[in-house]
């Protein structure tokens, strides 16, 4: 690893960041590169070290070794100057159950000496409105549902204007409507120029809202880059829906492709559609030429698609464990 000079256009940068608990390395020498203005997805199965990394970034826990720079400043040394510009949701929301939602936000806001007391009530009101909790502002948090607590946690991150938002599993406990709202919120924060760092174990979530991502597995980063880069590591497939599966396979083989063998029961009625897939190993075969060849051979093409590899394929290939909890 080369020693690089701190870069001003990076929101978060780590070098060889390591955190050990006893003999086990929860975070094992990771080099994160989060560009400013990015919506950065931090992917990994449960237990892969995502939340520990976030705790290290925010100065909640001390790294065993390695450097961290957040918004261009060394952490945790510059914590007092950096953290007022960072909004965070760390390992789920946490509040005083005996206080109302608004009172909780006011309480946590007093911790920030850069947050002016004069505008506190107004900022709390706006943050609650932004996450759709205005109606529950006066209700005790004890009576909140999990989804409402999650929204309140996001509101807490938005109490002051932020340059960086660190959101750990922001859609946990939210219904599909709430998930969509969070996605829109993240988009609007990014549009305002903030960098958003979203950790998640949900691929679809990251795929839908992020520009960049890193994949973590057992304490290490196994892939990192723009979403396109990450997907690009996989192989595209053609996918043909046709009742003439056998003929289609023959045509594909003639074009130099290797179609996947037929799956399903051998005595399936022939009038049902068969799905034939084949990997596109190189760019030598144009997809329109495949369609033309199929049609010329009398194959009844009812559906045709070229599919890039999904992030999910890459995720499973990289972590080797899908969504199982890491050991």
């Amino acid at each position: 690893m080369t020693v690089s000079t701190p870069s001003v256009d990076l929101a978060i940068e780590t070098h060889g960041l390591t955190k050990r608990f006893g003999h086990q390395a929860a975070v094992d020498g990771i080099d994160l590169v989060v560009p400013r203005g990015a919506v950065f997805g931090f992917l990994g199965p449960n237990g892969s070290g995502k939340t520990t990394t976030i705790r290290l970034m925010l100065g909640l826990a001390a790294a065993t070794s390695g450097d961290i720079r957040v918004l261009g400043r060394a952490m945790p040394q510059s914590l007092r100057d950096v953290l007022p510009r960072v909004g965070a949701l760390v390992e789920g929301p946490a509040f005083y159950p005996f206080l109302s939602g608004a009172a909780n936000l006011q309480r946590l806001d007093t911790a920030d000496r850069y947050a002016p007391s004069a505008t506190r009530a107004e900022r709390v009101e706006l943050a609650l409105e932004r996450v759709g909790l205005t109606h529950a502002a006066g209700k005790k948090v004890r009576a909140y549902s999990l989804g409402m607590k999650q929204r309140l946690g996001i509101a807490n991150a938005l109490l002051s204007p932020r340059d960086l938002l660190v959101l750990d599993e922001p859609t946990n406990g939210l219904d599909p409507q709430g998930t969509r709202e969070v996605r829109n919120l993240v988009a609007s924060l990014a549009a305002d120029g903030a960098t958003v760092f979203v950790s998640s174990h949900l691929l679809a979530e990251v795929e839908q809202m992020c520009t960049h991502a890193a994949v973590m597995s057992s304490g290490r980063i196994v892939a990192q880059g723009t979403l396109a880069d990450l997907r690009g590591g996989g192989i595209a497939h053609v996918r043909i829906r046709t009742p003439d599966g056998a003929e289609a396979r023959v045509v594909l083989a003639r074009l130099g492709l290797v179609p996947a063998p037929r799956v399903g029961a051998p005595d399936r009625p022939p009038e049902l559609d068969d799905v034939v897939t084949a990997p596109l190993l190189d760019d030598s075969t144009a997809s329109e030429a495949i369609v033309a060849a199929l049609v010329a051979a009398g194959v009844r093409v009812r559906g045709f698609a070229v599919e890039g590899s999904t992030l999910e394929d890459r995720f499973v290939a990289l972590t080797g464990e899908g969504f199982d909890v890491a050991q």
Binding site: L58, G59, V90, A111
Partner: peptide
């Protein structure tokens, strides 16, 4: 135990001040 300690520290309240 409530978990609010991490939010106070991320605030940042400052550990000595807290």
């Amino acid at each position: 135990s409530l978990g609010t300690l991490r939010y106070l520290l991320v605030g940042p309240a400052g550990r000595v001040r807290l």
